[in-house]
Amino acid sequence: MLIFSVFKTLTDQTVTVELKNDLSITGVLKSVDQFLNIRLDNIKVADEGRHPHMMAVKNCFIRGSVVRYVQLPAEHVDTQLLEDATRRDAMNQVKR
């Protein structure tokens, strides 16, 4: 749930999603759900020559399970807040 919240705060930011098949897609993060499925608008595929079939695609929905990395805009991530929230989350896990 914590990571889901982080992604929600990053909506309308530009991110780069790297998939497990090595496809890298940069676009504006429009929405995210609890499975970390991601909807991207205005997308641009890295190395278009290798993925010509993606040239016409302008927006997409990415299933969460095929994601390897998401590169985030560092200036929009409060690392101190993240660490505190993670510790709080870990405490609650133990109590349960």
Partner: peptide
């Protein structure tokens, strides 16, 4: 190198 990165747990 990458500045800020989310890594999916299943990898």
């Amino acid at each position: 190198k990458m500045e800020m990165l989310f890594v999916r747990g299943d990898s």
